Structures are given as structure tokens and as C-alpha cells.
Amino acid sequence: MPTTPSTTVHRPADVQRRALLRTARDVAEDLASDAIARDQAGEPPIDETARLREAGLLAALTPPRAGGGADWGTGCTVIREVAAADSSIGDVLARHYVHTWSGRFYASHPRATALEEESVREQWLWTGAVRTPPPPDDAEGPDLTLRPRNTGYVLDGYRTVDTGATVADQIVLDAVCTATGEALVVRVPPGTRGVTVEPARDRLGQRVAGAGEVYFDRVAVVPGQVLGRRPHDEESTAPFTALAEPALRLALCHVGLGIAEGALTEVRDLSRGGRAHRLPGEDPDLLLTYGELASAVQTATAVVDRATELMARALDTGAHLDPEEPAGVAALVATAETVTSKAALHITARVLELADAPGLDRFWRNARVLTAHRPAAHRLRSIGEHYLNASPRPVAAVFH
């Protein structure tokens, strides 16, 4: 009796996912071809963001919806793939992707849907700098204020933005309303009258991320630009909104992991080509070093992937998220940050001992800048509190 050849049925979502990952690999190869020259030049990522837009990545890396967007796991895979080739642009993509979720984190579902559709249609690049609520004894006062007026608000102040300040289409920020004291989350196009951007110059690393200081001088903010309220403390934070900060931190873990993978791959290729200090197979210590570094990457990958799966489930749950679940998600994200930061800094430093090649130092510089504002001790104490006391509070990290 003849057998019937088996056929595999591919769902539309699977086809879209594979196509998106192929596009990410193509973009990564393109970025890798001139990564060293662009790092040395340290110019705003005007050409780079044009490449992302032309490839369709800005429109694709938006929250999942019927017929489009990217689920959390796929979005993070794209970020890591690009970061391995150019961590500055991986950083830009990471913040873009997370900030496209801002409507869902802070606004109502209908408003979020309309905003996401407009973002895809216009191929907006998003960035932002939403701060965590300050401690009760904070005496510095807000750096951004909103003064009510008949047609909306007037925004004044300044904020450091770590990526895309010079090229983004939307910047997501929190500012304190002078009339009510509430912190409102708003989106502001950088081209708006009264917005001035001063690009960061001569950065140690992440030189092509487009960081800068953004100044707001009597900038008009209409009601449609107000996404919602930023909770003033942990107790008043809705469970889904509580995912906003750990989601960004986790996306940046994928950038750090991409840096480690990119550094190890580049030095391995140098060793195979005979351009490193020692050739593989001739020195047991060299094999030991590669074994150690490869194990460090795999360990970090396992922890980050576990946190990514947990975050994906929480995001899929949406408004029905259990109030205690964000604390567990944040604890695992903090663990992923700790492991990834250690691995990235260790690996990028060790590869400099294995090869002497132009541009190899960029991996360590990028890892150093990416992890500089998130001290491990603070995270570990928060993780310990969650583990020991079963604290329902989200595990925090110093993050700017």
C-alpha cells in the first residue's frame, strides 16, 4: 500500500515569525560589515535607523495583534540577533520595542490599539525615559513638569535619553502635573516646537545609540499625547503596568547577551583564521578558556530565556494578571540582569587576551556602558528580600 507523504501545516504566525527572524539576520549581517567604522565615527544613527525602517523592523517590532506585531519572545530574539552585530542598534531596537507597549502599560486598550496601528502605518521609531517613582524623602523635585492649559499642557524641563534621542519619532516620558501633583506619561515627537536635543559626544561605548540630553521649553502637549498616569508608588501600581520597567530591563539583557555572543563569535573566527595570539588545538589552556567563556554564555542564555518565557506569559495575560505575579517576574529579570552583566563584562574582557584585532575592544566598552547604571549589589539585595520574605513588591533596580 503506497504511503502518503507527510505534510507540515505552517500557521500564518509561524510563517511571519520565520520571515521576521530572517530579516533580522540579514540586517545583522549588514550592520556587522561596517560596525567598527561606525563605532569609531560615533555619529547619530541616522543611516542605521533608515536601514531598520527599510527592512520593516520598526513596524514589525510592535506588540502582537491580529495580522501583525511580534510576540515577546520573537521580539527579544530579533533584539539579540541585531545586538550581536551592533549593540548600539540592538539597544535602539530594544527600547523601541518596549516603548511601543507604552499604550498598553499606561492607557486604555482602545487607545493603545489605535496608537499601535498609527505607529505601524507611519513606521515610527520609539524611545523614552520613564522613571520609577521617587522615594518619599526625595527633595530634588521633578525634572519635567506639565502646566495645564485650555488645550492640554505645557511641558518644561530636561531628561537624558539613552537611545534614539536624535532620530526617534516618539519619546515617552513622565512629567509631574503642577496642578495635581500626578505623574503623567506622555509621548512627544522630538520635532515639536520647543524641543532641543544635544547629542552625547565621545561616549565610552554604545556610541551609535543616539544618546542625548533632551530639553523642553514650553512644549505644547495635547490630550491625545497623554498616555496615562505613572503610579506614585508600588501599592498603587496596576499589575500589568508593573511589568513596564522589568520589560525594558529584560530587553536590555538581550542586548547584553548579544554583546557577549558577538564578542565570543568574533574572537573564535579570529582564532580559526590564525589571526589570534594562539591557534586552537595547540594549547590546552586556550581550549579551557574557550570552554569557560562558552559555558558562561550558555548559562546566561538559560537564565535570560527563562525570564523571557515568564515575561511573555505575563504579557499575554494582560489585565487579568495576578497582583503578585509581577514581583516574581521582576525577581527573575533581576537575576537575568545579574548573570548577564557578569558574563558580558567577563567575556568581553577575556577576548582581548585571546586576540589583538582592531575594534575588538568595542565589545567591552559597550558592555561597560550598558551595565554601568545597574549595580549588582542593589539587585542582589532585592532578590534576597523577595526570596527570604516572599515580598510582593516588584524587585527594583537602579535604572535610568
Rank of each mutant, 00 (worst) to 15 (best):
Ala183Val: 04
Arg201Ile: 14
Val208Ala: 13
Thr196Tyr: 12
Ala209Leu: 03
Gly212Lys: 14
Ala183Met: 04
Cys177Asn: 04
Arg207Leu: 07
Asp169Val: 04
Ala200Lys: 13
Pro190Glu: 14
Leu184Gln: 02
Val186Asn: 04
Ala175Trp: 00
Val188Asp: 14
Val188Ile: 08
Gln170Met: 08
Asp174His: 00
Thr180Phe: 00
Cys177Leu: 06
Arg187Glu: 05
Val176Asn: 11
Arg203Ile: 12
Val195Gln: 15
Val172Thr: 08
Arg207Thr: 04
Arg203Trp: 05
Gly191Tyr: 06
Ala183Cys: 07
Gly191Arg: 06
Val172Pro: 06
Arg203Lys: 15
Gln170Thr: 02
Leu204Val: 06
Pro189Trp: 03
Leu204His: 03
Arg193Ser: 14
Glu198Ile: 15
Asp174Trp: 01
Pro190Thr: 04
Arg187Pro: 09
Asp174Ser: 05
Arg203His: 09
Gly194Thr: 15
Asp169Trp: 02
Gly205Asn: 01
Val208Ser: 10
Glu198Asn: 09
Val176Ala: 11
Arg201Gln: 14
Gly191Lys: 07
Ala179Val: 06
Glu198Leu: 13
Gly181Cys: 05
Ala211Pro: 07
Pro199Ala: 13
Glu213Pro: 10
Arg201Trp: 06
Leu204Gly: 07
Val186Tyr: 01
Glu182Phe: 01
Gln170Val: 02
Gly181Thr: 00
Arg187Thr: 04
Val188Ser: 14
Gly205Tyr: 01
Asp202Gly: 11
Asp174Cys: 06
Gly191Val: 01
Val186Lys: 01
Ala200Arg: 06
Glu182Arg: 02
Thr192Val: 09
Arg201Leu: 15
Asp174Tyr: 01
Pro199Trp: 07
Gln170Leu: 06
Thr178Glu: 09
Glu182Ile: 03
Ala183Arg: 03
Pro190Cys: 07
Gly181Lys: 00
Leu204Phe: 05
Val208Pro: 07
Val186Met: 02
Gly191Cys: 10
Thr192Arg: 12
Gly212His: 10
Arg207His: 03
Glu213Thr: 11
Val176Trp: 08
Gly210Pro: 08
Thr180Lys: 01
Asp202Pro: 05
Leu204Cys: 01
Leu204Ala: 08
Gly210Phe: 03
Val176Arg: 11
Val188Phe: 14
Ala183Asn: 03
Arg203Cys: 09
Gly194Pro: 04
Thr192Ile: 12
Thr178Gln: 15
Glu213Arg: 11
Arg201Asn: 10
Gly210Lys: 05
Pro199Tyr: 07
Thr192Lys: 15
Leu204Ser: 03
Gly212Tyr: 05
Ile171Thr: 11
Gly210Val: 09
Gln170Tyr: 01
Glu213Asn: 09
Leu173His: 08
Val186Arg: 03
Val185Ile: 02
Val214His: 05
Pro189Arg: 09
Thr180Met: 00
Leu184Asp: 10
Tyr215Lys: 12
Ala183His: 03
Val208Ile: 04
Val186Glu: 03
Arg193Gly: 11
Val188Pro: 13
Val208Met: 13
Leu204Glu: 08
Ala183Gly: 05
Gly191Ala: 10
Ala209Pro: 03
Ala175Glu: 11
Val195Glu: 09
Val214Gly: 05
Cys177Trp: 02
Pro189His: 14
Thr178Tyr: 10
